[in-house]
Design a protein around this nucleic acid. Sequence first.
DNA 1: TTTGATTCTCGCACACTGTACTATGAATCG
DNA 2: CGATTCATAGTACAGTGTGCGAGAATCAAA
Lengths: 277, 277
Amino acid sequence: MPRNTDPIAVSVWTRPPRRARRGQPPLSRDQIVAAAIELLDAEGMDGLSMRRLGERLGAGATSSYWYVANKDELLELAVDQVMGEMDIPDLAEAGWRTTARACAEEYRAVLLRHPWVIGLMGARPTIGPNAMRMGERMIGALAAAGFTGVELAFASELLSSHAVGSATIAAAMHQASDRAGKHPNELVAELDPYLRGLQDEYPGYIAVWYATKGIDMDKLHEDGFGYGLERLLDGLEIRLHSPDDALGAPEPDGIPGAHGTSVSAPSEPGSSGSSRA
Amino acid sequence: MPRNTDPIAVSVWTRPPRRARRGQPPLSRDQIVAAAIELLDAEGMDGLSMRRLGERLGAGATSSYWYVANKDELLELAVDQVMGEMDIPDLAEAGWRTTARACAEEYRAVLLRHPWVIGLMGARPTIGPNAMRMGERMIGALAAAGFTGVELAFASELLSSHAVGSATIAAAMHQASDRAGKHPNELVAELDPYLRGLQDEYPGYIAVWYATKGIDMDKLHEDGFGYGLERLLDGLEIRLHSPDDALGAPEPDGIPGAHGTSVSAPSEPGSSGSSRA
DNA sequence: TTTGATTCTCGCACACTGTACTATGAATCG
DNA sequence: CGATTCATAGTACAGTGTGCGAGAATCAAA
């Protein structure tokens, strides 16, 4: 019996999981995914191999392959699993801005708890059920704010992007400090002489470096995320109050609202109906 | 002679490259990095193995190890190499907003031309010379706008994050469509029935889905990026005009500028001088 | 209970990976 | 001319994902 002759096996999500046996099943897809996440959290991407996974499960090296087509699919399942950790407040109680903020914050928090996810994000779209559940909340909040159609999609992507980008920066720092076996702050302090020598070449960069010096790196990154989040929500909000000009058109330097040249506006801005092109 | 006894071998950038020989050097670090990028661009991360790299260079499988400590370091060099492709306009001519926008746009463009970079971004901080040169431009633009100190760092990270996040989403889609051997638009169309069945579960998500239906995916992502970029620049700009309240403090729903509870403000906002803590 | 069919586990094998080590040649220097 | 340094490449090792097939375990039906 061939394992993967399903013609529409585009993604894990289009194919039902293996039915568990009636008795006590010694293995299950959930168990496998959970064990994989444990390994990934503990030792990162390199820590997960199918052999080590089997070992941890008390099973054979290739036993997992009955429940999971391949390692990529296992990772996809693991990513969606951790996406389920997000806890988003009720829109009606919290209001759109608080809810949207919480979505971004929770997203970032998940990525920092499971940094291995970050390296997988560009590999395939996150369309698992939990990821979509979170997307639904985000969209709900922005729809309540007044966004519709493509602009709703754009605003949602903007917030997600910010979470991903911020987590990426923080995770990169942690990876580097873990590798060196030192606390991030310590590592940053040690990079000092190297950067000091480049003062002439990158004056602005170094100025920023020194402005942030002495501040705890984790706090700095978190504050930076929060700061950006508010700027971004502000930007969305003023857009809500003056949505007259061309959608997404670049504006010249000056007060936001002044109108520059109109380029690359998507068709039918503001329309939420479907239309084939 | 041991290869890596350098006690301060924190990163490639702290160690000088191998000196080329006087005669015609058949191999060089630049050549190796260039070949690696070719392989990565053509076939992605899986396409690059040290053996295949050697083959492409007409050299032995392990010959590259003379110029490069290990594969990770090679990747780090490759990442910084492509960062050098960015072309940023002159700040004095273009103004801060145009320059900042160009930085983000060029960053995103690089990531889409070399999608394998995205998967590496969380692995270590991008402190290569070319990455820093680009950071310098970005910071210069924002400093010209009026940002200082930590806020300058935050604003810079915000713009970078947006580029990374947007590129990640677009790259994920391309990876999926490449794997399926179909055009993104075609693939999206095929996912239709799967998503249609989830209409009750994720109504908002599906509404957005249909609103964007029929639009070319690449254009959609690019427009989304541009839209977010303008919102984000707007948010930064209004911050410049009313920087009175606590830095980065969340604001309640309503008009931006209304002040909520003050949390987690970094020490000495606005100070660009150095201060040891 | 016996008989098949289905569901699951697991060891083996294969091609491939990164890279430490070492031998060998080539260029350069004293 | 050695002697020394620089550069290349072959070998080997431990580890990877996973296709395949033998076998066990469990089910439904006879």
